[in-house]
Computed example of a mutant assay.
Amino acid sequence: MAFSYDQRAFFQLNGYLVASDRIPLPLIDKVQSLVRREIDEKVQPYRLVGGEVSRLDQLWDRDPLYREIIEHPMLLDALQDILGPNIEFLTRRHNHVTLNGPRHQVPGRGGAGFHRDSLQWSRPIVTVLVYLDESTVETGATRLIPGSHHLPYVAMPSDGGGGNHLAEHEEYAGYADQGLACELPRGGVLLFNSLLFHSAGINRSPTDRMSITLGYRSVDELQPTPPGYAHLVRGRAIYRGNDADATRPKWQGDIFSGHDAPERG
């Protein structure tokens, strides 16, 4: 997979892209069977809604089969067109599989409710949704507000969590009416800016809809990543802070001439 220049510009302007390729269905089958088994056996860590397991957390540290999705070449190729060649997978944001079904609706929230995955622009993230089931309006397709990643930060969330909720701030009044449902096939992949307001729709079908939520970022060239916060999944863990200048060739004008060249003025 490769995104064109126009597609990358679309992502920057509108905040999302649908991948044209899909994760192979044989892999989707195996992962979905694993999820069902771990839910039945209540393999920790997990989250409950109404006494039912609605989410399995910390996918990276669970069965290695999950990493076949997280590090799938098709997915990383798509991310590279947006993030560049050096990519980290985040363990402290997303990193879970979710069930969206009649038993898992949060009362009064209308699905998950429009929200951002990040509070502000301090740590740009690409959120990736991989659909283990077909995502339709009937089964609660993900809803997006195109361009809403450009809306400014206004306040902290009341629940103290990451990101923010659209409905809590009058400055965002009316934007919920601009939400669009994004339907994808089984194995489909949706990528969006973590500041884009989005929501799971209400699943009105009799069956659950299962999806994996992942977070990626470019390697931070100015701040080395602490152990355990992220994993390098493509490229190199580069560091380009000025304090590393002593280990680089010195320069004079536009010509690099080795460590014995004059220091910068």
Results as ranks from 00 to 15, higher is better:
residue 59 L to C: 07
residue 60 W to Q: 02
residue 61 D to F: 11
residue 62 R to M: 01
residue 62 R to L: 00
residue 64 P to A: 07
residue 67 R to I: 08
residue 67 R to N: 06
residue 68 E to T: 01
residue 70 I to F: 00
residue 71 E to S: 14
residue 72 H to C: 02
residue 73 P to Q: 11
residue 74 M to Y: 10
residue 77 D to Q: 09
residue 77 D to L: 07
residue 80 Q to W: 09
residue 80 Q to S: 15
residue 80 Q to A: 15
residue 81 D to G: 15
residue 81 D to L: 09
residue 82 I to H: 08
residue 83 L to H: 06
residue 83 L to Y: 10
residue 85 P to L: 09
residue 85 P to T: 08
residue 86 N to S: 08
residue 87 I to F: 00
residue 88 E to K: 08
residue 90 L to Q: 10
residue 93 R to C: 01
residue 98 T to H: 14
residue 101 G to T: 09
residue 101 G to H: 00
residue 102 P to H: 06
residue 102 P to V: 09
residue 102 P to E: 01
residue 104 H to L: 07
residue 104 H to Y: 01
residue 105 Q to D: 05
residue 106 V to N: 11
residue 107 P to H: 02
residue 108 G to C: 03
residue 109 R to Y: 13
residue 109 R to S: 13
residue 109 R to V: 01
residue 110 G to M: 06
residue 111 G to H: 03
residue 112 A to H: 11
residue 117 D to H: 04
residue 118 S to G: 06
residue 118 S to I: 03
residue 118 S to R: 12
residue 120 Q to K: 14
residue 122 S to C: 05
residue 123 R to H: 14
residue 124 P to L: 05
residue 124 P to D: 03
residue 125 I to N: 04
residue 128 V to F: 02
residue 130 V to L: 07
residue 131 Y to M: 14
residue 134 E to H: 03
residue 137 V to T: 11
residue 138 E to T: 13
residue 139 T to P: 04
residue 139 T to C: 02
residue 140 G to M: 06
residue 140 G to K: 04
residue 141 A to I: 02
residue 143 R to N: 13
residue 145 I to R: 12
residue 145 I to Q: 09
residue 146 P to V: 12
residue 147 G to Y: 11
residue 149 H to T: 10
residue 150 H to Y: 12
residue 150 H to L: 13
residue 151 L to N: 10
residue 152 P to W: 05
residue 154 V to K: 05
residue 157 P to C: 05
residue 157 P to W: 08
residue 157 P to Q: 01
residue 159 D to P: 02
residue 159 D to H: 09
residue 161 G to N: 00
residue 161 G to F: 03
residue 162 G to P: 04
residue 165 H to Q: 06
residue 166 L to M: 15
residue 168 E to F: 15
residue 170 E to R: 11
residue 170 E to D: 14
residue 173 A to P: 01
residue 173 A to D: 15
residue 175 Y to H: 10
residue 177 D to Q: 13
residue 178 Q to N: 10
residue 178 Q to E: 14
residue 179 G to R: 02
residue 180 L to C: 04
residue 181 A to P: 14
residue 184 L to N: 07
residue 185 P to Q: 13
residue 186 R to V: 01
residue 189 V to P: 08
residue 190 L to S: 02
residue 190 L to E: 00
residue 191 L to D: 01
residue 192 F to Y: 13
